[in-house]
Design a protein around this nucleic acid. Structure first.
Lengths: 123, 123
DNA sequence: CAGCATCCTGCGTGATACTG
DNA sequence: CAGTATCACGCAGGATGCTG
């Protein structure tokens, strides 16, 4: 009964976090959605920013990421239900509350990643 | 050169972040080290918190994580150089600057993850 | 347009055994 | 004590083709 491989989330919030944002695109999707709802194709296009050398994300992968994010409760899927298909994804309340965290990550990343590592062996 | 699969970090700080903390233990190691230097075995023991059901992290994996963190510039390895072996790991300046980010992650995680019942009434 | 089905591959992770 | 060496495996993630 959920003890073999289940890690207590309360004891390990970072593990739960890592699991939630596992995958190459989830964080970027959330960040992309912070400006408002986006359609499937728009998200896909947005994921190409800064990755000109690489191929586009495959539908299989994107679909899975979106589904996982939905099941995590970070985003919400809105199917307009008719042809041609139109589906929008938007941040949920939970997802919006997560944006500042991503912002903190981005801010730190911009400040500390991509610049020379100045070794300091203090003391 | 270095453009084939290299994703511009500046264009994608979250990607760089994810790469940096990829792996199940890196975030927890950093968090563990925030209280001060720790020895290899101590880190290993500390990783067992909340994972009683699972086996301990294998030396191979821990070694790899520590090496990666070192090469990322987040932690520093201090080898006392004599027998019996004694090695301490500590956060670098960069690593320390990263702690608040992990704190933000933890805080968010504690608030939004692992609380199936009575969501935000317990604040 | 927004997916799903199938196949395939690399890598992260674990188990086990050995060493300085 | 603090690792390294070897083997094995599951799974994320890419390629390709098809559908409602």
């Amino acid at each position: 009964m959920a003890k073999a491989r289940a890690i207590p989330l309360r004891a390990c919030p970072v593990a739960a976090f890592q699991k939630m944002i596992s995958g190459k695109y989830k964080l970027r999707i959330v960040w992309d959605l912070k400006d408002g709802p986006r359609r499937y194709g728009e998200i896909r296009s947005g994921l190409l920013r800064g990755t000109e050398g690489s191929a586009a994300i495959t539908p299989r992968v994107l679909s899975r990421e979106l589904k996982a994010l939905t099941e995590s409760g970070l985003i919400d899927r809105k199917d307009f239900g008719e042809v041609p298909p139109k589906v929008e994804y938007r941040l949920t309340r939970k997802g919006k509350s997560f944006v500042p965290v991503v912002a903190a990550i981005r801010e730190w990343g911009e400040r500390h990643l991509g610049e020379p590592v100045l070794a300091e062996a203090a003391e």
